[in-house]
Amino acid sequence: MKCKKCGGKAVINMRQNNMGLCKDDFLKWLPEQTLKIIEKYKMFTPKEKILVAVSGGKDSLALWDILQILGYQADGLYIALGIDEGINYSAESQRLTEKFANDHDLKLHVVNIESDYGTDLPMLASNTKRGRDKPCSSCGLIKRHEMNRIARDFGYDVLATGHNLDDEAATLFSNTLQWNGDYLYRQGPVLPEKDGLARKVKPLFRFYEREMAAYTFLRGIDYIYDECPFAEGSTSTEYKEILNQLENQHPGAKLHFFVKFLSAKKKGLFAEPTREIVPELHICPSCGQPTSARDFCTFCRMMGKGSDR
């Protein structure tokens, strides 16, 4: 297969775009497209301070790499959750993230849940009502809380995550199967700043997971290849596989599914939830972050405030 730009040997075939590209053109094309997405969706400007949530996985490291190539002021945030499960998962993820930051002379914030809160994800997964049998739920809660805390405490304008198109399509698939109107209304590449919650953006949302894997490979970025042990067999992985089967039969199906959803949303297909569905936000007396709960927020309750344990 030939590169559509230069006629050289292609290293990747993007069937949904009917385009193959060689290494050099692909490594040029992907950051250029990211810049277009950032500008089109008004995610942030070159003057704004960006906090990139970095997990040590391919997508978040690729995002950090692309943002620094594009010249944005992007610092990283790694959240150490204490997942070991016999493969040193968190320790290895942290090592790879720190290596990337050192190699590229980038600033990295590291939050260690055990040192800061005296517990870790495996303990929360077994000891709390929220975590029991569903560690991914606790993980998501911790990440959202800590990302927002660091963004607020260090004056970042925006939080960027490495969600790719497969992540977004799988989430959309899940929300659609459950007709989760509230989540469908909120899902998108930009979540505006609101009531003490930092703006969140997903600059990679138009790229297939496969393209991000190719990018990190071609850029020589070391990332954690093992799947999170807690995420093995997760519903999101299952949905991704189903969508890939569809994609295999109908190239572009994943992209159309998500992009057409965004168009439909823009045209007003999904209504803003009413006040009865979305309760007013209050300030958590413990951490100062917004919460819909009457007293402590869900994160603080999980960490031992109140009666969640």
């Binding site: 297969m1 292609a10 290293v11 990747i12 075939n13 193959g20 290494k23 297939y208 496969r210 894997a213 190719a214 490979f217 071609l218 596989e241 890939n244 089967q245 994609e247 295999n248």
Partner: peptide
């Protein structure tokens, strides 16, 4: 599924 993997031969990425 081709969508679920990238393929590498002697350090080089390959199309299918």
């Amino acid at each position: 599924l081709p969508e679920s993997v990238i393929c590498v031969r002697e350090g080089e990425l390959l199309t299918e």
